[in-house]
């Protein structure tokens, strides 16, 4: 049965995630008992490091792979639970602002990536995939776009490898930059949500900075994810006009099909919280469920990052992606800092 096949991998995610949490707590307890100030390394980082170590030394055995691949499912469940920590007003204000930022980000990213793609002589469809991957949602956007624009498997795997490698890099780089710039939790969370590729990496980068930053990173990233259908549809129409992809007949149905449904769950739970449907202990329990679900995700981020596989994909798509990412990181940072007083960040 399907669930039975997934069980070993899900257990592995839970063990690695819990080992990360246990390590953080043990180090803190040791420091306290011995009156020593030890650096506080968050459970998020430990879980990712343990996963990375396994994936890049012994590799994940085949028995565990179907379950490890569920890490994005737990992420989506975690995001729905996280709705409990938002009031609808915040979601509308910050989510709406995020959508505006995403629109600007998209325009700049598409123009820049197209120019870079030409400079580095990448295939136009690979360039489209890199632009979609770096501006919206990383791997899921690339998968959604691949079918719609009729791209090669090879182009899609190049784009995914580049986006994953850059996501892994951002995971460590963003919190360090955020601390160096003295950003507050909300500002950093919004920045990570808008600039870090892949929802799992954006959530992890935010949570590495602080719990509150993780919450706002999810909000901004969720707004970004919601635009996936529109962007993929835009590209599909463009490539159909070039007679290099199939025409999409029912555009409304296409948009609905590509829309990430967990966003609706997140909004619903946030609405329930705003209407006061949860008692304080209930809201705390649901928020904790979200943390546990994210813990499985963070373990999965490490386990699925295979550095050797990324090396095999070659440097050019990675360089194009990296230049684009730096530009997007700078642009989104400027937008967040500029809009901070207006948004009360």
């Amino acid at each position: 049965m399907n669930l039975l096949r997934k069980l070993p991998g899900i257990l592995l995610l839970a063990v690695i995630g819990y080992a990360g949490k246990f390590t953080e707590q043990s180090i803190a307890a040791y420091g306290k008992a011995h009156h020593t100030a030890l650096p506080n390394i968050e459970y998020v980082l430990w879980a990712i490091i343990f996963g990375l170590l396994i994936a890049n030394t012994v590799r994940v055995p085949a028995l565990f792979r179907p379950g490890v691949d569920t890490y994005e499912f737990w992420l989506k469940i975690g995001i729905v639970f996280l709705g409990v920590r938002f009031v609808v007003g915040d979601v509308v204000k910050l989510g709406g602002a995020s959508l505006l930022f995403v629109a600007i980000e998209l325009g700049v990213s598409i123009a820049l990536m197209t120019w870079l793609g030409k400079k580095f002589q990448l295939s136009p469809k690979l360039t489209s995939l890199l632009a979609i991957g770096s501006s919206i949602c990383g791997v899921s956007a690339i998968i959604a776009a691949k079918g719609a624009i009729d791209a090669d498997d090879e182009d899609a795997s190049y784009a995914m490898a580049a986006v994953l490698a850059l996501g892994a890099f951002s995971l460590f780089a963003f919190p360090a930059i955020g601390h160096a710039l003295g950003m507050n939790d909300k500002m950093f969370g919004m920045w990570a949500g808008l600039a870090v590729d892949n929802t799992a990496e954006a959530t992890a980068a935010g949570t590495l900075f602080s719990d509150t930053a993780g919450k706002f990173a999810v909000l901004a990233k969720t707004a970004r994810n919601a635009t996936i259908g529109f962007v993929v549809l835009g590209y599909a129409i463009y490539w159909a006009k070039q007679s290099q992809a199939k025409e999409i007949a029912r555009k409304g149905a296409f948009l609905w099909e590509k829309f990430p449904k967990f966003v609706l769950g997140f909004l619903l739970v946030s609405l329930m919280a705003t209407l006061g449907w949860f008692t304080k202990p209930q809201a705390a329990d649901i928020a904790n469920l979200s943390r546990w679900a994210f813990l499985l995700t963070f373990a999965g981020v490490g386990l699925r990052t295979d550095l050797r596989e990324m090396k095999k994909q070659g440097m050019r798509p990675f360089v194009v992606g990296a230049i684009g990412e730096f530009a997007i990181a700078g642009l989104t940072l400027a937008m967040i800092v500029g809009a901070a007083p207006l948004l009360g960040l």
């Binding site: 499912f73 989506k76 729905v80 769950g265 739970v269 209930q282």
Partner: peptide
């Protein structure tokens, strides 16, 4: 009709929230 994993994530999360609200789930610490 087969539901996508996306929908399943929403259904499972809402079911768990329902259990919390009904008091059928033990307290979840972090």
């Amino acid at each position: 009709m087969k539901l996508s994993l996306d929908w399943w994530s929403v259904i499972l999360a809402l079911a768990a929230i329902g259990l919390v609200m009904a008091g059928a789930m033990p307290h979840i610490p972090w």
